[in-house]
Write a protein that binds this DNA or RNA. Structure first.
Lengths: 184, 184
DNA sequence: CATCTGTTTCAGAAATTTCTGAAACGACAG
DNA sequence: CTGTCGTTTCAGAAATTTCTGAAACAGATG
């Protein structure tokens, strides 16, 4: 590990993202690559990332590929330069949206599909409880993903407004529906 | 792998949870143990789980320990029986709350702490952009965890009401605050 | 078409995580 | 105290994941 080009601040940040990587379902190098790009003032090319992290060129290449699969880094070019230049989106909310969506796709959707499939099968008598439990779980997940879909619809400004509502959130659903609030 | 005691339905479910385990940040066996318990009609002891999954006794023990650390399984006893009997909470919403809280603890909180720490350090001139980016990220995470805290406060019934609001969600924040809605 | 610059692939090496059987441990009963 | 029944720990084995260097590839240029 060289990291000759990184300031202490950046280095510390990058190392942290590397460590957290495994908890986040990506590996250390991928986490570090993302961190470097996240802090970068301007687009970086693969060689600069390699230099900053001191890992092999192919490792950088694979990491970038994975980050592109996650849609977490973008690719651009400079005139008269064949290299790929990488950036993370400037807008943090966009990053959050992508992250949640991708995680949903990988961690939730396959299970939802499987649960629906299992519910189709006619349960043998002894499976009554299991069958009910699966149905219950499917309903819960559907409710939560439905809620997510609604939130994802909102423009960022409204999403922020919603999130900043704080204690008012409880008020809204304090009766049974928002309608009762309207009348009050 | 024997799984002699599991019906096809359960087996299929268990296998799926095993495969998803790695994406969820737990390992295959832990995922399978959880799945077996989730579907079980009544508490199971470690031996029954071992029998159902065909893995080693110690592996079951470690898996159960990890699930207990996640607070995803509970322990009970029967009179005149020394064995530990395990269950998952009946209430799925409780499971969701625990899951989100534990994931926040493991995946978010350490980073929030680190970001705050990094912000303390006086940035050298060249770190202006990085410093700003870190601050921006910290603010975003604080807003989201604040929102989460507010949601977590709600009793389940109200949480469900909120999640079922569907398109109304957009309406609430369509002006600037809920107050404008109240007056309407 | 040979060369130069850059990216990607891939098979094996290295590192990490997971799993196992054996032994240690603990609590209780006789 | 000793034997039984159960859980836990742990060091090494097995499996999986990650990483590397070398080779293949791609496309522009002279």
């Amino acid at each position: 590990m060289h990291m000759t080009t990184l300031s202490n601040l950046r280095q510390d940040f990058v190392l942290h993202f590397g460590e957290m990587g495994s908890r986040w379902g990506i590996n250390r190098t991928v986490g570090q690559i993302y961190a470097v790009l996240f802090l970068a003032d301007e687009p970086l090319c693969a060689d600069e990332i390699q230099e900053a992290l001191g890992v092999s060129r192919s490792n950088v290449s694979m990491g970038l590929k994975e980050l592109q699969a996650w849609r977490l880094v973008r690719l651009s070019h400079k005139p008269g330069d064949r290299r790929d230049w990488f950036t993370t989106p400037d807008d943090l909310w966009e990053i959050v949206r992508i992250l949640v969506e991708e995680r949903k796709k990988r961690e939730i959707d396959p299970t939802l599909t499987k649960l629906r499939e299992l519910e189709m099968a006619k349960p043998c008598a002894s499976d009554a409880h299991a069958h009910a439990r699966i149905a219950e779980l499917r309903e819960l997940i559907e409710m939560m993903t439905g809620f997510y879909d609604e939130m994802a619809r909102l423009e960022t400004e409204r999403l922020v407004a919603l999130m900043k509502m704080g204690r008012k959130l409880g008020k809204i659903v304090s009766g049974a529906s928002v309608l009762s609030l309207k009348k009050a």
